[in-house]
Structures are given as structure tokens and as C-alpha cells.
Design a protein around this nucleic acid. Structure first.
Lengths: 183, 183
DNA sequence: CTTTACATGTAACTCGTTACATGATTAA
DNA sequence: TTAATCATGTAACGAGTTACATGTAAAG
């Protein structure tokens, strides 16, 4: 049930459209939560029906009109009490890692390729996070409290990425040694 | 659709029951994939219907009879070709990290507590992984190829856990400073 | 002329969780 | 006698993905 809370979280400081939210899930919010626009629009409807969000149409010229959603008083209440509920450990799933349990002579080259591809993706994410860090989060000590929280999430995302890059290098080394030795 | 492949993966070397599989998802396989027994039994039925698994009853005395599942020739084929399909990046979701975007004076103490609890859970996982590493994976160079793959997954799980412990320490430090400063 | 960005939705389906359901054996 | 381990399932619901559906404007 955390998508609803992720959306409420995104609306703490600004009113956003469904489209804006979809982008937010690709950037800063996206460090630890993602959602497709299809999921977002359905959830926005539910949250509005429950009175946790308000909506208003915004006319635009040269562009499609949009609907801006804002968090209501009840919405803030729901978000605040959610923070106090104990989060259960998020299951960690990764298809690529699962594939390594099937490592054999015929797929070792392919898996090396997939690791390289994934390494590239993680590098791009890290580049994005680094821009955020240098931008709004360059002086963490001086940030208001809420932003310090976002900073901590950003740091978690960055160090996870950095460890992954190190793992990639080790794995690629091992895979190449195996390929040469067997190949 | 990866649960089916996770199950096939677990059966590469041994025949296992649904119950055994549930345990496997809590230990070595569980590093990067988890599933409940309810999910497992349903998936076993589907895989058997598709001819990717075979099953046989095993009579036991003093214990309930069990059903052992084994991978069929078609099952191995499906697993092998799955490895060659490009894995899409697994979305990374974490409710606890999401909560940090709502950090404020009234919840800072609670979030510190949740971080401590999570730290403890991760420590326990690391302890389990360390036992595995010292056991079957103490000499990675000498492992057969498939086991080298499992070793790499294990290393990924371990370094992810270790980064997380470091992050916890940094986060707890920051949260305590804030509590003192504001409290 | 083609792609990207802007903008919002529905329908069908699959995946995953929670609750329900049962029952024997062993260790504390 | 209480909890843990062994052992297998169904039903209902909620979460998430994929496919379908439409249309304008700006940039290359």
C-alpha cells in the first residue's frame, strides 16, 4: 500500500499533475520508489475519492489542460501516521542475480554482457544523483530537517550504486578469467 | 514472471518439495529472490501442468508425506533460454527510505528506531551469508563454474548489506545530532 | 516527416499478500 | 502444554504490468 504514500510524499511541498508525478518517480522520488503513469492515475482517483487529495483543472494554451493534485489536511494526517507504522523489510529481488545461479560455459559471455549493461544503467543513475547532490544538497548541515531526510535517502541510493559498480568490476574480472581459462 | 525461473533454478541440482523451496527462498536463493509458500505451491502446479517439472510422492513415517519436484528436460530448456533473455532492471523499492522524505521533528526519533531495527535485520542476514561464504564458498577459485555464479550473487548480497550498515551509522549520527539540536 | 514531450485515461491480466484451513511430531 | 518444525493447499483481495486509446506542439 505504499504507492499511495509515495504520491502523498511527492505532494508535500507542491501541487503536481499525474504527468509530473510520473516524472518524479523517474528522478528524486524514484531513488526508492517507482510507478508507471497507469498506476499513478488509478491511485490518484482513489486518493481523491478518499478525500486525501484535492484536484483542480488548469487551462493551458498550446498544451493539453492538466489536473493539479494537492494534499488535503486528511492527506497530511494519513501520511504522518503512516510514518509511525513499522515498515516491513522490503523484499529484494533481482532477476540478473538469479541468473548467476545458472552460470555455465555457454552463458558466461552473455552474463558478462548483461553485467556491463547494468553497470552502464547504474552509472547513469549515479550521474543523476550526483547532479542532485551538487545542486540542492551540497551543504547537508544547512538543510531544513525534511531535506536532510531526502539527503539521507539520496546518500543511500548513491552508496548502493557505488558498491554495485565495485561488484560489477569484480564479477567481470572473474567471468573473463573463466572465459579465457575455458574458452 | 521470474518466480517460475527461481523455482527451476532451485531444482537444478536437487529434487525439492514445496516446503524445501520455501526454506530455500529464506536462505541462499533468498539473497535476491523471495516467495511465500502460498505462491510457491501455485507456481509448482502451473509448472507441472506445463511439463517443466515432474513430481513424485514420497512416503514418510512419523512425518507428513511429501511431494518432491524435479526439473524436466523441457524445464532445463526453459531455464537455459531464460538466461539469454535480457533482464530488465529490477525496480528498487524501500518503504523505509520513502519515509525519510517526510522527516520532521515529531518523527525523527521513530525513524532512528526503525533504522536501528533494520540494521539489526541486515546484520542477521550478513551473519547467515558469512556462514555460507565460510562454508561452501571459502575457496571461490576452486569452485565449479555454476558455484562461482552463486558465489558472485553471495558477494553482491554481502556488499550490499555492508554498505547499508555504513549508511545506517551515518544516518543515525545525523538523526541524533538533529534530535539533540532541536530537542 | 519523425520523434520527443506534454497530457490523461481504461481494460485485461498476472503477480503477490493475507487470511483461512488442516494435522502430525518433536523439543522445551 | 505450548511452541516450533514438518507438510500442503484454497480463496479473496490488492498491487503492478501490458496493451489499448487519443491528441497537440515543439524540435530536429
Amino acid at each position: 500500500m505504499a504507492l499511495s504514500h509515495a504520491i502523498l510524499t511527492a505532494l508535500i511541498e507542491d501541487e503536481l499533475s499525474g504527468y509530473d508525478l510520473a516524472k518524479a518517480f523517474e528522478t528524486s522520488l524514484g531513488i526508492f520508489w517507482q510507478a508507471s503513469h497507469q498506476q499513478i492515475y488509478q491511485e490518484l482517483r482513489k486518493l481523491t475519492e478518499k478525500g486525501l487529495l484535492s484536484k483542480r483543472q488548469v487551462e493551458q494554451n498550446g498544451r493539453p489542460n492538466k489536473i493539479l493534485y494537492g494534499i488535503t489536511v486528511q492527506g497530511r494526517g494519513a501520511l504522518d501516521s503512516w510514518v509511525f507504522q513499522t515498515a516491513k523489510t522490503q523484499p529484494r529481488k533481482d532477476e540478473l542475480m538469479l541468473k548467476f545461479y545458472s552460470l555455465n560455459k555457454s552463458n558466461v559471455a552473455h552474463l558478462a554482457l548483461e553485467v556491463e549493461r547494468r553497470r552502464e544503467q547504474v552509472m547513469q543513475r549515479l550521474y543523476l544523483y550526483e547532479k542532485l547532490r551538487r545542486g540542492d544538497y551540497s551543504k547537508p548541515e544547512e538543510l531544513p530537517l525534511r531535506r536532510k531526510g531526502v539527503y539521507l535517502a539520496l546518500m543511500a541510493g548513491m552508496s548502493e550504486g557505488q558498491y554495485f559498480l565495485q561488484w560489477c568490476d569484480m564479477a567481470l574480472n572473474m567471468l573473463r578469467t573463466v572465459e579465457e581459462g575455458d574458452g
